[in-house]
Computed example of a mutant assay.
Amino acid sequence: MDSSSKTCLMAVLAASGSVVFLAMQAHNRLLSNFINQMEFQINASSTGAAAVREDPKKKVRFAADVADKGSGRRAAAGRRNGESLEAMPRNWQAMYKGILQQRNLRGYM
């Protein structure tokens, strides 16, 4: 074989290898997209419309003896001026004390 036929053979091998590599990459991407779409459809059909919606937000409820409506603005303003925890409404006091206890248990402070 002369040098021109060797060069031609190397060019053919390089081109065919590149085509095979690109075909494999395209196949992998198409396959992964297809699998993702199928998983989404399976999850949506098995759980109904709940898969699209998020979980409802949790609501905080206080006991009747702790809940204090009103004076929320006054307590917040008083706290900024350096007044103590007792200036806050009782429901805020309970929540704030719980937050502080949780932080102390975790070692944040």
Results as ranks from 00 to 15, higher is better:
Met1Cys: 11
Met1Leu: 11
Asp2His: 06
Ser3Trp: 07
Ser3Arg: 13
Ser3Gln: 14
Ser4Pro: 00
Ser4Cys: 05
Lys6Ser: 15
Cys8Leu: 14
Leu9Thr: 12
Leu9Trp: 04
Met10Asn: 13
Met10Gly: 14
Val12Ala: 11
Leu13Asn: 12
Leu13Lys: 02
Ala14Asp: 09
Ala15Val: 13
Ala15Arg: 15
Ser16Ile: 08
Gly17Tyr: 05
Gly17Glu: 11
Ser18Val: 08
Ser18Gly: 15
Val19Gln: 11
Val20Cys: 13
Phe21His: 11
Ala23Ser: 13
Ala23Thr: 10
Ala26Gly: 09
Ala26Tyr: 09
His27Cys: 06
His27Ser: 04
His27Pro: 01
His27Met: 06
Asn28Val: 06
Leu30Lys: 10
Leu30Met: 10
Leu31Pro: 02
Asn33Leu: 09
Asn33Cys: 09
Phe34Met: 04
Phe34Arg: 08
Ile35Val: 13
Asn36Arg: 14
Asn36Leu: 10
Asn36Glu: 12
Glu39Trp: 00
Phe40Ala: 04
Gln41Asn: 09
Gln41Gly: 03
Ile42Trp: 01
Ile42Pro: 02
Ile42Thr: 08
Asn43His: 09
Ser45Ile: 06
Ser45Phe: 01
Ser45Asp: 03
Ser46Leu: 08
Ser46Trp: 00
Gly48Ile: 04
Gly48Met: 03
Ala49Asp: 12
Ala50Tyr: 02
Val52Trp: 02
Val52Tyr: 11
Arg53Asp: 07
Asp55Pro: 10
Lys57Arg: 09
Lys57Cys: 08
Lys58Pro: 08
Ala63Phe: 02
Ala64Ile: 09
Ala64Thr: 12
Asp65Met: 06
Asp65Ile: 05
Val66Ile: 15
Val66His: 04
Ala67Thr: 13
Gly70Trp: 00
Gly70Glu: 00
Ser71Gln: 08
Gly72Lys: 12
Gly72Ala: 06
Arg74Met: 06
Ala75Glu: 00
Ala76Met: 12
Ala77Gln: 13
Ala77Ile: 15
Ala77Cys: 08
Gly78Cys: 07
Gly78Ala: 06
Arg79Gln: 02
Arg79Phe: 00
Arg80Trp: 12
Arg80Tyr: 11
Arg80Met: 14
Asn81Arg: 15
Gly82Phe: 00
Ser84Arg: 09
Leu85Glu: 06
Leu85Ala: 04
Leu85Trp: 10
Leu85Arg: 09
Glu86Leu: 08
Glu86Arg: 09
Ala87Arg: 11
Ala87Gly: 01
Arg90Asn: 04
Arg90Ala: 02
Asn91Gly: 03
Asn91Trp: 02
Asn91Glu: 12
Trp92Val: 00
Gln93Ile: 00
Gln93Met: 02
Ala94Val: 03
Ala94His: 02
Ala94Pro: 01
Tyr96Leu: 13
Tyr96Val: 15
Lys97Glu: 14
Gly98Leu: 07
Gly98Ile: 01
Leu100His: 07
Gln102Leu: 13
Leu105Lys: 06
Leu105Glu: 07
Arg106Thr: 07
Gly107Ile: 05
Tyr108Val: 10
